[in-house]
Simulated scan of single mutants.
Amino acid sequence: MTETPKTPFDPHPPRRNFYGRRHGKTLRQSQKGYLSDDLGELRPRGITLSENPQRLPISPSAIFGDERPVWLEVGFGGGEHLVHMAATYPGIGIIGCEPFINGVAMLLGKIRAAGVGNVSVHPGDARDLMDVLPDASLDRVFLMYPDPWPKARHHRRRFVTPEHLLPLARVTRPGAEFRVASDIPDYIRQTLEEVPPAGFDLVADSDVPWPDWISTRYEQKALREGRPPRYVTFRRRG
């Protein structure tokens, strides 16, 4: 039987049908240590319903302690890209949202190894965070190799639907950048169709990654299996 680690966050968040499983293979002892020792300090307060039942706004300045620019990564996977961005841009704050607890544990290990101090980690659905962020509070958003939900009946679970994109548009500043990377052609198709009506202008659709990009394990798997990635950039309409 897989052992469920004891973690300092709400163990029963409301399921909103965006993500799949929350747990994978049994965590290593070191990963359990990251969750018990590090997550409590990095987790933003007031995101879960148990902590904020009235869904009062939570300012990013309350999360990072100052008025720095704030970025968001939706579904950070193993955390390679998020930690790379945090190290490359130490003057900004990055919030990572990921409901898959094994990915959270992997990220925490990478944060320790890199020694970055400008990361906040929400171990849950990004929409819970968007529910409580003030209007126009994010300067950049990343959606890197999201779950493709390949079956047609599951396309509504994809992040690039109005249910997710309209709240995202509300919390991004005019001129904010929204980056999407995927190796699934149909996901890119839906992205190009759905994101502009939500309030974003297409800036670039390329097979060449961004200059500050770091290749992730998901991208490397896609390349090994012959699926060329696409890198799409939008800008929040002002």
Rank of each mutant, 00 (worst) to 15 (best):
G115A: 15
P196A: 10
D139C: 09
D147P: 08
W210F: 13
A87Q: 10
H164D: 01
F159I: 14
K151S: 08
F100S: 07
R170Y: 08
A176I: 07
H164T: 11
R127I: 14
S120F: 06
P162W: 09
M106G: 11
P123E: 13
V141S: 08
F142R: 06
E80L: 03
R173H: 06
R189E: 13
R189L: 11
Y89T: 10
G103Y: 10
M130G: 02
G103F: 10
G109N: 15
D201K: 12
R140F: 03
G93W: 01
I184L: 02
E194S: 14
G91Y: 04
I92G: 02
P99V: 08
P211N: 01
L82F: 01
G115T: 14
R158W: 04
I184Q: 10
M130D: 03
G78C: 14
R127V: 11
G91H: 11
F100C: 06
T191W: 00
R156Q: 13
P150W: 11
M106P: 01
D186H: 04
G93C: 06
L108N: 10
M144N: 14
A114Q: 09
V141F: 05
F178K: 04
L143H: 02
P211E: 08
I111Y: 07
R127K: 14
D135A: 15
N118R: 10
M130C: 11
L166H: 13
G109E: 15
L168M: 06
L192V: 05
V180N: 00
P211T: 04
W149F: 08
F200S: 05
G124N: 12
A198Q: 07
V171K: 07
P162L: 12
L133I: 06
H81I: 00
H164K: 00
A169I: 04
L133W: 11
A114P: 06
W149D: 06
N118L: 10
V119M: 12
A86T: 08
E177F: 06
P90T: 14
T88Q: 11
I101G: 06
R157K: 14
V70C: 15
A126M: 11
L72N: 08
K110P: 04
L168F: 04
V203F: 03
F76R: 02
P146Y: 00
